[in-house]
Amino acid sequence: MRNLIICLFCSLVISGCGFSLRGNYELPASVSQLTVGSSEAHSALERALRNELKPYSVEVIDSSVKGTSNTTSIYLLSDVLDRRLLSLFSTGQVAEYELIYTVRYELQFANSDAQLLEFEIKREYQDDPDAVLAKSRELELVLSEMRKQAAIRIIHQISIAQRTIVNTAVITP
């Protein structure tokens, strides 16, 4: 009984301080509709973002449809994959790359100015010239995972930016 009370007390203290599990991002209630668009038609990052938004109770609207005045908008400007050489085999062939996935997007909340945001996701990638087909498939999987992580990061940024706007509006008279 004592252990149960201690566990209950600890969980109340942890949840009371605002702790939440990693990856558990709650979008504010004010983000009920979200307009998603991209400079590139049928963008893979846009599809990944739409997939990651499915668990949230947010109505995702295509950018071609005009949203209401309380609509939050995300416009994906660019997503670029760059490679940086890390090491070489003794034969001079590339042994290892650093993959750098750069995402630029515009985030605009209802009745506020658009924010231009950018971030990078980096991964190390080992190349094997003897297994070209397998490594090309592996590269596709790594890029897909990087897009998924970028979509999660955009959702997290929406949550943080909206809280910042709300807190700033409460503080300023």
Rank of each mutant, 00 (worst) to 15 (best):
T71Q: 09
I61N: 01
P28I: 00
R22Q: 09
K122M: 07
F119L: 08
T72Q: 04
S159F: 03
L4Y: 11
S90E: 15
R123K: 12
A44C: 04
R147K: 13
R22I: 09
L34Y: 02
S11A: 14
L27A: 06
G37E: 07
K66N: 11
V36Q: 01
Y56C: 04
V142Q: 06
S64Y: 12
E26S: 11
V142L: 10
R2L: 13
F109T: 00
S64L: 13
F19V: 07
M146R: 01
T71V: 10
Y125G: 03
Y97E: 04
S87G: 09
S57T: 10
P55F: 00
I6R: 05
V103C: 05
L86N: 03
S32W: 02
Y105S: 05
H42D: 14
R147Y: 04
L45Y: 02
R84C: 01
Y56K: 03
G23N: 07
R47N: 14
S73P: 06
R137T: 12
T102C: 04
R147V: 02
C7M: 11
N51M: 12
S90W: 06
T71E: 07
I100T: 09
R83K: 15
S11W: 09
L141I: 12
I121P: 00
L107N: 01
S90V: 12
E138S: 12
L88H: 12
L34F: 01
Y101C: 05
L76D: 04
I74H: 00
I121M: 09
L53P: 00
L88S: 09
L27W: 01
A44E: 13
S69E: 13
L86D: 01
R137V: 13
L76T: 07
P173K: 05
R163G: 13
G92C: 08
Y75K: 03
D62S: 15
A161R: 13
E98M: 06
G37F: 03
R163K: 15
E96N: 03
T71I: 08
E96V: 03
V132H: 14
S15C: 08
E120G: 06
R22V: 10
P28G: 11
E140S: 15
P173R: 00
S90F: 08
S78W: 02
Y105H: 06
A95K: 07
R47Q: 14
L143F: 07
E96K: 07
Q149Y: 05
V31N: 00
L85Y: 04
S32I: 01
S112V: 02
